[in-house]
Each structure stands twice: as C-alpha cells, then as structure tokens.
Amino acid sequence: MEIDPFIFRFSIFILSIFVGYYVVWSVTPSLHTPLMSVTNAISSVIIVGAIIAALASNSDKIFETSSIFGFLAIILAAVNIFGGFLVTQRMLQMYKKKKK
C-alpha cells in the first residue's frame, strides 16, 4: 500500500520539533529576547501562502475576496519579516565583549 504524503510531511514536522528542542536549549539565556524576535521573523514565512493567495485570482480581476485576504496577509507578514530581522540585528549589534 502506498504511503500517504501527509505522513511524510508529518515526519518532517515531528523531526523539526526535535531539532527545535535541542537547538533552542543550546541558546544562551542572555539571547532569549533576540530568540523571540527572530522566531517571530521566521514564522512570517507564512508570507509564502499569502503570495500564492494573492496571485491566485482565476478571473481577470486582481482583487477578489480571496486575493484581498492574501494581499492583507502580505502586508502583515512583511511588517513582521522586516521588523523582526532588523530589530534582532539591532539588538545583536549591542552585545559586546569586554574591551581588554
């Protein structure tokens, strides 16, 4: 019997949870705030879905109900992507070692 592709995706999901578990435990506590802002930024990869939704109008009209939701989601995700990565960068720039 053929394996449902869902099982493969589910395997990726479960394995990623384990990867996340070990990677996040190794994050130093002093960088927990940048960790939150960067996870925030990367979870905005949901923009992928938003782009598909926005470009998927099957008529000649660019703006129909489903694509409007896509465009709105693009704005929200874009705020997050740029805001998240840049604020993380700004924070990380401040972490300095003692000058000898």
Binding site: I12, F13, I14, S16, G20, I42, S43, V45, V48, G49
Partner: peptide, 9 residues
C-alpha cells in the same frame, strides 16, 4: 519551509 519553521518556533 512553513512546516519546519512552525515546528521550530
């Protein structure tokens, strides 16, 4: 990409 990221976050 979304599944991996979602699980990580």
């Amino acid at each position: 990409a979304l599944i991996i990221t979602g699980a990580l976050v």
